[in-house]
Design a binder for these strands. Structure first.
Lengths: 138, 138
DNA sequence: TAATAGATTTAGAATGGTTCCAAACTATGA
DNA sequence: TCATAGTTTGGAACCATTCTAAATCTATTA
């Protein structure tokens, strides 16, 4: 997953949305660092944009499937990798990492049958201690 | 999972916390209906308690492992079933249902190895359409 | 290139879930 | 019954997010 401006332009064109400097700016900010930034963190990376614009843009990106909003305690973090994966979350420092793996199809079938829901996408968060926090005292 | 007042009393005793009428009241409210109520919904079930008390009590219950807070978009819902399971969430109406199943151990091992995190508990939310919403037009 | 229509940006106000606070109260053990 | 540490409470405070309406811009057509 790279910061490919063409990917953004293409997605905007395909949906008939104008390319604006603000959208390019937020897109760039999403990739200055690997991670799962909040709207506030992205705003800190583009202080020249109003916070409302950051929110508007993220909502658009979400609708286009370019970004996935992760509702965590109190804040929403944005995952710039829309491919399905597991989020590993540190219960001590809150850091988030990705692991590329999915629940097995048999699990999906079972859950769908048991619940009667017509399933689309899973979201799997696994809580634990990140490598750094493992070495610290409780 | 039953509304067993003894279970609450026992957990409070074990942690050296006083048993108060408010705690019994919130406990009772958690079980008047199967579901995943928000703090506001619980408050509606015990209007005689201040909202702050509902929050305080839920925080305590969470600390005691009696309840699991599910941070969803905009609200926290409280799951009164602390045993591990999958939450199935309707993308249309927001309803939540439970399915008793866990990711397979092999998946856990893989995620732990790949991430370097020391994993504790997973949280798996599967989005989809509930039976009611499946029959409605988009 | 200029004009146009429709979408976007923007600042500030508003919203709403949740937390904080300090005073009054109470469950518990002695 | 008393003392005390913990709890309850109402209201204010917080803060992430959404809303609003006016100003501005993008893409397109002439």
């Amino acid at each position: 997953m790279v910061n490919d401006v063409e990917r953004l332009r293409e997605a905007l064109r395909a949906s008939g949305r104008p390319v604006t400097p603000q959208r390019l700016r937020v897109w760039e900010a999403l990739y200055v660092e690997r991670g799962h930034p909040t709207a506030a963190e992205l705003h800190a990376r583009c202080p020249e944009l109003p916070l409302a614009t950051v929110y508007n843009t993220l909502e658009l990106f979400t609708g286009l499937g370019l970004v996935i909003p992760l509702a965590l305690e109190g804040v929403v973090r944005y995952d710039a990798d829309p491919s399905e994966h597991v989020n590993v979350i540190c219960t001590r420092c809150g850091s988030v990492a990705d692991v590329a793996i999915l629940p097995p199809p048999a699990m999906r079938d079972w859950v769908q049958m048991e619940s009667g829901y017509q399933l689309s996408h899973p979201r799997l968060d696994w809580y634990g201690l990140c490598p750094d926090c493992q070495t610290l005292k409780p």
